[in-house]
Design a binder for these strands. Structure first.
Length: 290
DNA sequence: GTCCAGGCCAGAC
DNA sequence: GTCTGGCCTGGA
């Protein structure tokens, strides 16, 4: 990997395992906007950046300092995905899935934003999840600036979102029955009843149980949050798609979600989260098991 | 009109 | 502890 500094942009040369389309469409993030030229724009850490892939990976609208202090970690660039592929490829099924979703990286996203986003994802559809998250940012976040003719807003803090009215969330952000869950969860976090900062170092099961104190956070959402925001690559979120894929390719029989999560962690170990992500993308894009 | 989508929750056993 | 029905919403 070679970092080249340009005019308010960073170019990364000699980086394998980075495919923006797969990274942003594999279901871990819901705010990246695809531009007409195939690049992607979003705001994170109160900064707007645009990501594209040509010969090099280009991160536009970023200083070298921001790249090093923010985006290196956000895009998981410190991880050796080559080594990861070696390990996962021992499993033939996984090898295929990983080839299919080549260049998926697991982002390290903001915990609170991830929690709210995945509360919204329950029994929902991706286009609607995206709309709700965008609307919530507009309504309760702060305007950061504009890029490519669009305005961008930060995702609100727990404090900001705890003051939202449930009826506004329902009427304008179209979150339906998830309205109360969003406000209650925001309150619990802003009041410190659930301390997100304490979740990094404690055992996975404890962190999971702590997250599940939040209304709207069940086993699946907790696992997604642990994987996408807390670097817990050993967690194995089980949604309907993973259930189908695991039943079809591994277990060969109808199995309840808890058992599938146990099996996932048993089979894939510390890389369970990565396995999950590749299997999910592979299964969903190919309509496996339907 | 009916069905269902990247789950959660409450209530029933 | 395990299982089931219902849930906002909007597009098929």
């Amino acid at each position: 990997m070679k970092i080249l500094e340009g005019n308010n942009k960073i170019e990364i040369a000699e980086l394998d395992f980075f495919n923006p389309e797969h990274i942003f469409k594999c279901g871990q993030a819901f705010r990246w906007i695809e531009e007409e030229d195939g690049s992607y724009t979003n705001v994170a850490h109160n900064k707007i950046i645009n990501v594209s892939k040509g010969e090099n990976i280009v991160i536009d609208n970023s200083s070298l300092e921001d790249f090093q202090s923010i985006w290196m970690d956000y895009f998981d660039l410190n991880r050796d995905y080559g080594a990861l592929r070696e390990e996962l490829s021992l499993d033939e099924t996984l090898k295929n899935a990983m080839e299919y979703g080549s260049g998926i990286r697991i982002l390290n996203q903001d915990p609170f934003e991830t929690i709210i986003t995945f509360i919204i994802s329950a029994n929902n559809q991706i286009p609607r999840i995206k709309n709700s998250v965008a609307k919530i940012s507009e309504m309760y976040g702060s305007k950061i600036g504009s890029y490519g003719g669009r305005e961008y807003y930060s995702f609100p803090s727990s404090d900001e979102l705890s003051r939202a009215k449930v009826e506004d969330l329902r009427e304008f952000a179209r979150v339906g029955f998830r309205d109360e869950r969003i406000v209650k969860t925001s309150k619990l976090i802003s009041e410190g009843a659930v301390d997100l900062n304490s979740l990094y170092e404690i055992p996975l099961e404890d962190a999971r149980r702590e997250l599940m104190k939040l209304p709207g956070v069940g086993p699946k959402v907790a696992d997604c949050v642990l994987l996408f925001a807390f670097k817990r690559s050993e967690s194995f979120p089980v949604d309907v798609w993973i259930k189908r894929v695991m039943e079809e390719l591994y277990l060969k029989k109808d199995t309840n979600k808890n058992l599938i999560a146990d099996e996932g962690r048993r089979i894939f170990g510390k890389n369970a989260g990565f396995a999950q992500q590749y299997l999910f993308y592979y299964g969903r894009e190919n309509n496996l098991g339907r």
